[in-house]
């Protein structure tokens, strides 16, 4: 039994304090759940604010510019100013839009983006709901974001939006298949879909060592799933303005943005948990390791954006179906044979 440390200890202390005031242990459970939910939503909101600033600074760094540097020390308050600006923007609905679908799309997009945070193991035992179908829940939830994109594209009564919405569906569906198959190798090795078991299985060897092909396939497909460059055909500024978001203003547009950055964090967390050993690491506390690895993954995704040019849609589709999918299938076969031989000899 490992010693109770890190974030879980904070939770235990909070639980102890609540136990003093509340008579019923069930009430304490509910209170703890609410506190956890509050923490998750704080993380999501903060992520968007911090990542927007980071993204702008990283891209400035890569293009030898200085980036935002006016608002606050070093431009750190730039995102806060942007957020206030977005709140105070006028709300314009395009003429002839499909009203309810147009209103619902950003709200529905936010729900799956927030819901996947349930299964993230931030530290030893610091996981909101350690579901026995953990990774499967992530895949199921994250693929729900296809529909709101199509809704937004369809309802806007704008041709660019419609093209963007259709592209989203084609791209996200095509890249979901190799992504799911690349995760399959991890499930085979860990023998479980529970996140805590997968992390515990990597105590000695990170799965990136055993599954390098799966990691590469996962990173590429994850970039496509969150619609980031070089797979940003969905938004493709120079082709279709902003794709499905074209007609959205103010807070509605901010919700798309929030979901986008929450998804960026989500795929980085999943990459960390599945391939980079989660919170496992020497000397430092678990959650520090966890956030260091996640930060590294996010930096990698930002790096991609300024390294690769955008693909054409026929290249995108043929790359997904003819390269990544056979590669992911091959990875499963190799993993299966490897595991069988390993068991045979040991």
């Amino acid at each position: 039994m490992q010693e109770i440390t890190g974030l879980f200890k904070i939770a235990e202390i909070l639980r102890g304090i609540l136990g003093h005031f509340l008579p019923d242990p069930q009430l304490v459970d509910i209170c703890m759940s609410l506190i956890n939910i509050g923490a998750i939503f704080t993380i999501i909101s903060l992520t968007a604010v911090v990542l927007v600033y980071t993204e702008r600074k990283v891209s400035a760094f890569m293009q030898r510019r200085s980036g935002p540097n006016r608002v606050g020390p070093g431009g750190t308050l730039q995102s806060v100013a942007d957020m206030i600006k977005l709140m105070a923007k006028e709300d314009i609905m395009p003429a002839g839009a499909d009203k309810w679908m147009w209103i619902l799309a950003p709200i529905l997009l936010f729900i799956p983006a927030a819901a996947v945070f349930v299964v993230f193991p931030f530290d030893n035992k610091a996981i909101f709901a350690d579901l026995n179908i953990g990774i499967f829940y992530f895949i199921a939830m994250s693929s729900q974001s296809v529909l709101p994109f199509l809704m937004a594209g369809w309802a806007s009564n704008n041709k660019y939006s419609l093209v963007g919405g259709m592209r989203t569906v084609a791209q996200m569906l095509s890249y979901e298949v190799p992504m799911v198959l690349s995760i399959l190798g991890i499930v085979m090795l860990a023998g479980s879909m529970r996140m805590s078991t997968i992390v515990a299985a990597q105590q000695h060897t990170w799965f990136i060592v055993l599954q390098p092909i799966a990691f590469v396939v996962y990173v590429i497909t994850a970039t496509a799933e969150i619609n980031r460059a070089p797979f940003d055909l969905v938004e493709g500024e120079s082709e279709i303005v902003a794709g499905p978001f074209t007609e959205y203003t103010g807070m509605r547009w901010a919700l798309f943005f929030l979901a986008e950055y929450a998804n960026l964090l989500a795929v980085s967390v999943i990459a960390t948990t599945l391939f980079l050993g989660g919170w496992n690491g020497p000397w430092l506390p678990g959650w520090v390791w966890f956030f260091l690895k996640v930060g590294g993954m996010i930096f990698l995704f930002m790096w991609f954006r300024w390294t690769f040019p955008r693909l054409r849609i026929d290249q995108l589709m043929s790359f997904g179906w003819k390269v990544l999918l056979p590669l992911a299938l091959l990875n499963i076969i190799v993993t299966g044979i490897g595991m069988y031989i390993y068991e045979f000899f040991s």
Partner: peptide
């Protein structure tokens, strides 16, 4: 817990 979070996720936007 998941159900509760989904509710909050609907209310938040």
């Amino acid at each position: 817990n998941v159900g509760m979070l989904l509710l909050v996720a609907l209310v938040f936007p």
